[in-house]
């Protein structure tokens, strides 16, 4: 079901944590709210669920205005970071609890529970208690409880962050498949940009209560709307070097990069991704830098260099071999570089 947030705000006294959030989530869409902890993304999700009151603005789910409707009438399902399994109920009772509340007939309830459990491969664990399950299995119970009553919207609050790295990867894939299969609109909150990039149809990046950009993952990666988004997405993060624009090039402390079409500017943040640049000899490079440290990760080497005050990270192949404090040159692929206003952090276009 379509979910619309229209200029939603949340304040606690004088503290405003969500500052005018506008989102239009299409039916069946998987939208990921991404941001650092405390940026207001969880609050936004809880407002959609109805656990927090909406200070200002309106919320539509489907055709209905849900701004002030109690959570239980919103027909949303939520998966919590802690899974929120009821420790005194079996897996089957946990999954069936929402249906029991709706006074579903027993036979129907049982078949629905079994169907939901089968979807997440839990059919053999129905009589266990939550404490007898592994972290991944608990996660599945929480998912099964969410899907058992076919809600209008799935809400997920960092559901994978309590799992270890390996399991998280596997669950991610499963979650994506499950959502596609069920076709239920999903709002997913995370601080993990990899989760956001892999799961989302669209990613909404938030910072300090303000929505920075909403776009498909590839678009977010290639064309970040703000310096914050640019730094937040990608690992290692996009390099940002302070410089100035004039005469078709960006001048930084130790060199310059030719960049056509930009209006002259006193100070800009010049950004380029680690894979969009390469190390050359100090004499021939566009910029001159000093090697700060090198980290070999197996398939590649992450080289951190210093340009004046700024650190720049470059991806090199695994055979790269240079010592710290040696001088190098850095070449940048001009069409992949992005410029941001130094003060506002907003993207500067040609």
């Amino acid at each position: 079901m379509r979910v619309q947030l229209k200029d939603i705000r949340k304040s606690y006294g004088s503290l405003e944590v969500v500052k005018g959030l506008n989102l239009d989530i299409a039916e069946g869409e998987f939208l990921v709210l991404l941001g650092e902890s405390g940026c207001g993304k969880s609050t936004a999700l809880r407002m959609i669920a109805g656990l927090e009151t909406i200070t200002e603005g309106s919320l539509m789910i489907g055709e209905r205005n849900m701004t002030e409707v109690l959570p239980k009438y919103r027909n949303v399902a939520m998966v919590f970071q802690s899974y929120a399994l009821y420790p005194h109920m079996t897996v089957a009772e946990n999954i069936g609890y929402p249906l029991k509340l709706q006074k579903t007939p027993k036979a129907e309830l049982q078949s629905a529970v079994l169907a939901a459990a089968t979807k997440v491969h839990l059919e053999d664990y129905l009589e266990r208690m939550p404490r007898q399950l592994s972290g991944g299995q608990r996660q599945r119970v929480a998912l099964a409880r969410a899907i058992v009553r076919t809600p209008s919207v799935f809400l997920m609050d960092e559901p994978l962050s309590n799992l270890d790295a390996k399991l998280r990867g596997a669950m991610r894939a499963e979650l994506k498949r499950l959502q596609a299969e069920l076709g239920i609109t999903t709002v997913y909150v995370t601080h993990d940009q990899i989760e956001a990039m892999t799961l989302a149809h669209r990613v909404a990046v938030m910072d300090a209560g303000v929505l920075q950009q909403v776009a498909p993952p590839k678009e977010i990666y290639d064309n970040p709307a703000t310096r914050f988004v640019a730094r937040f997405i990608g690992s290692p993060a996009m390099n940002i070097v302070t410089g100035s624009v004039a005469d078709g090039r960006v001048t930084v402390e130790e060199g310059a990069v030719p960049l056509e079409g930009y209006a002259p500017r006193e100070r800009v943040s010049f950004g380029f991704r680690p894979e969009d640049c390469s190390l050359v000899s100090p004499e021939s490079g566009m910029m001159k830098a000093r090697v700060f440290s090198t980290e070999m990760t197996g398939n590649e080497t992450i080289v951190t260099c210093e340009i004046g005050q700024d650190h720049v990270v470059v991806r090199e192949d695994k055979d790269f071999d240079m010592k710290p404090d040696e001088w190098v040159g850095i070449d940048v692929v001009p069409e992949k570089a992005r410029l941001f206003d130094y003060d506002s952090g907003k993207r500067v276009h040609t």
Partner: peptide
């Protein structure tokens, strides 16, 4: 944990 109660609230419990 308040999560448990919130979860039940969303699921429709009074």
């Amino acid at each position: 944990p308040i999560d448990l109660e919130e979860s039940a609230e969303i699921d429709g419990a009074s």
